[in-house]
Write a protein that binds this DNA or RNA. Sequence first.
DNA 1: ATGTGCTATTTTGTATTCAGAATTCATAGT
DNA 2: ACTATGAATTCTGAATACAAAATAGCACAT
Lengths: 214, 214
Amino acid sequence: MPIERRPLREQIREELLRRLDRGEFTAGTDVNEAALAAELGVSRTPLREALITLAGEGVLESNQGRGFTFAPVSRKEFRELCEIVAALEALALDSSDPAHLQRIAPDLLRMANDFPDSVAEQQVIERHDDEWHDLLLSGCQNERLLDLITSVKAGMRRYAHLLAGDDAPLEREAAEHSRVAEFLLTGDLKSAAEALRHNWVNGMERMLSRIPAS
Amino acid sequence: MPIERRPLREQIREELLRRLDRGEFTAGTDVNEAALAAELGVSRTPLREALITLAGEGVLESNQGRGFTFAPVSRKEFRELCEIVAALEALALDSSDPAHLQRIAPDLLRMANDFPDSVAEQQVIERHDDEWHDLLLSGCQNERLLDLITSVKAGMRRYAHLLAGDDAPLEREAAEHSRVAEFLLTGDLKSAAEALRHNWVNGMERMLSRIPAS
DNA sequence: ATGTGCTATTTTGTATTCAGAATTCATAGT
DNA sequence: ACTATGAATTCTGAATACAAAATAGCACAT
């Protein structure tokens, strides 16, 4: 097996995203580079590099002379992000091999049905959801598109922990995933893409109330 | 007037993009940080920061221990990028205020008609095209989407200079812009979005032959 | 001629240092 | 008490320094 060797900035970026998932950073507050670097046990240089990429993904904002701040959450932005991801995943579906989609449809259906029960911790639920979407897009040949989707989703991680603890959405989510999978089974791509978009928009509406009014 | 004060990394990024437009960097070659920094008259730190953001936008690739290389161009990637931008601009149109679109439609039409003549230099043509698209999206409220489009388009700049010198596409482009504008005039958003997508896909097909076969 | 192992050089990745901007805090004046 | 002014401090932005990895060159063996 190849030994993993990745630049520090990437590891830092991922660690920061993990902490974001856990809600360790409150939106709107600014980053103290020296303190954070010390906490992570690295120097400011690779930390800043990670911060810059995160700023490019919309997770942080950078203000001249004032450093980086965790971008404030807002219903407006969350709506915007959902619309973007919906469009991008729909495009990815569009440019996937129909045969492949039909092949993975049973797996998608199975995954949708045995969704984690509501007592599972947030982390598990999210991972499950991610895996479903990853499988869904596994046939997309447009690499740039897949990268882009990953990047935009990173920008949504700030909202992840706000969802935690609400059970109702879970079954709903599973039902919608099933719907998408069923359309794929019958080869009805158009409807599948539509259902997928509906999943995002609907999921968004459900979560919206949990986001503090700007 | 407020004095402009922007971080060095942004200025460097833009300068690099400008040079890319002029075809000063050949795809596939790697960046020598020290040399480039010296040439730009800055230190390696802000240069690397710019390189990292450009890598995030797909302009560069970064390999562990080997630094940054200008991402190679390929027909496949160009096709991918066009599809993405087409989808994103269509979404932007979708989430624009119809009234505003109808209001700017005459201007869009005018701009499309007095496109720069074929002897104009590439720079002028590109600027004109950009302005048209900027105006088109001026009514889009989805800020994240606009940022994303800008970012993806940055990734396309590597292909800009490959197009230079071909006249035929020009009139064609103008005609298609007119079509979009006319649909907007009549308020037919659906068709306008369709025509816009066609413009991207079509423009792509036209340019494809100019890209060296991977 | 080809390949292997070693050394020297170059280049990246990270740490540290330095200068200047922003913020804070205290003080003086109203 | 409240505002304005200025020094002290903190923090960022940029430059420099250092360590480790990669590359290139060369001698030597096959």
